[in-house]
Nucleic acid binder design. Structure first.
Lengths: 257, 257
DNA sequence: AACGCCATTCGACAATGTCGAACGTCGGAA
DNA sequence: TTCCGACGTTCGACATTGTCGAATGGCGTT
């Protein structure tokens, strides 16, 4: 592809490798994984080290991501419009529903969590902003997937986390059709036993789905005795999604211009 | 500097600019800021866009950081040894002291927050992992600064946030000397009115100070009636710092090998 | 002591990134 | 409307710059 810079692509690949890999990597491992000559990889790593994107362990010589990356990551959050617009509505949703709220968007066929509000009453929960969730086994993911024009976003292999996870493309397609019809999505024990979630799509200007907002918690709180999501909670989630969408400039039938 | 890659340095500068700048920037603004030719900047941006590090607004053409940066940022947190080791000790410290706990390290003459535990009883606090704090007006910063061999880490200009902030190099130097003598640091209304904090350095193998852990909260809870940090809280903080340091392989006089 | 693996340095080649000039487009001003 | 300026983008040629093979020195293991 002309007009792009080869060395920057390679540097990005190095950073991805360091982020995805389990901790530190040696120069040899990196150069082997990317099929680059050792001196080439060394030059890239030295540059990344100079700018603070990677750090090098003095004794082992191994490389890992540097502190500057954290700044860039949170810098993205500051700029991210989906997140900044949704913060104002996530807190009320958490308060009204009594459950943890998460906002996500699609990244590489998975759900990237860009905002997270803890369940109001509970303590000692782990923040998972920045983590990736499977797109086919979460309410957030299904809400995002159902409205994507590019079906390519659907993963080829569907990992089965529990017996309730959609395991085939047929099941998933049917589930997405139901989501489109209902306007919201749910997931009951498809990712973790005993947990369920409800989500709705967030639309930006033009009606394009750019994210999803949802709640998740213990199945007995999210669902009624028939394992069906409680209508009151569904209404809460849909209202929040509508509010965020309106902030982002989306219009609804009969709504303001 | 030989052995480094020019284009990667430039790409890093672009990313920094996008992270530091207020939101979206145009191609012309970026190329002007970095004193690069427009086509050069364009090539860099296209490459960064291809790998997901920046996104481009379709209508305005302006650029902003992309979602992939968030992944790399949190990837740093996963790998960061200081953070992973300190998590186990931060929760108990928060529980015992009843205050919010933060762990920080030095980045570019400021304090980078790498971990944050909310105050146990309270709700609706904002997470500030990834944010930068002034190094001369926080207990974390003074704990870090006091033990740095390279005095260059001390900022040239000392912003005065309140009337209690150390405004001159003399004041700061004296404060750091006191920290070294005591082995812990404190800050009372030096950054925000009504707030105070206590911190202690975290040492890694070899005794090198690699971070600091501390608590912060309302001044009347952190301090006694004479505006002096409560000894019990100081002990809690120092114990936590020692525990983390031991996990990182530091040894103390008379300690284990 | 000898081997293998490692990170790093050197030097030469050409592949690659850079930049000036030019194009198409948009928005505002005359 | 027409003009003007600024913008993002494309093209092509030059030489800067990144790349890679070979070689070095250091470490831990055999």
């Amino acid at each position: 592809m002309p007009g792009t810079v080869q060395s920057i692509e390679r540097a990005a690949a190095v950073l991805r490798l360091l982020a995805g890999g389990s901790g530190r990597l040696s120069l040899a491992e990196i150069s082997r994984s990317l099929d680059l000559a050792k001196p080439t990889t060394h030059g890239i790593l030295q540059t990344l080290r100079k700018v603070g994107f990677v750090e090098q362990d003095r004794v082992s010589g191994h490389y890992q991501l540097g502190a500057a990356m954290l700044r860039l990551g949170t810098g993205f959050l500051d700029v991210n419009e989906l997140r900044s617009r949704s913060i104002n509505w996530a807190d009320p949703l958490a308060a009204r529903s009594g459950e943890a709220v998460r906002i996500g968007t699609v990244l590489d066929g998975q759900v990237l969590v860009v905002h997270h509000v803890f369940r109001p009453d509970d303590t000692f929960q782990t923040l998972d902003v920045g983590s990736l969730l499977p797109i086919h086994a979460t309410a957030l993911g299904k809400a995002l997937l159902a409205y994507r024009a590019d079906g390519a976003a659907a993963p080829a292999a569907l990992d089965r986390f529990t017996s309730r996870t959609a395991g085939t493309q047929r099941e998933l397609t049917e589930a997405l059709r139901a989501v489109r019809e209902a306007g919201w999505s749910a997931e009951v024990e498809e990712l973790h036993r005993g947990e369920a979630s409800i989500a709705a799509p967030i639309r930006a200007y033009g009606g394009l789905v750019v994210g999803a907002i949802g709640i998740s918690g213990h199945v007995e709180r999210i669902c009624d005795s028939h394992y069906r999501p409680r209508p009151a909670l569904v209404a809460n989630v849909r209202d929040a999604a509508r509010a965020v969408s309106r902030d982002l400039g989306a219009t609804f039938r009969g709504g303001a211009p």
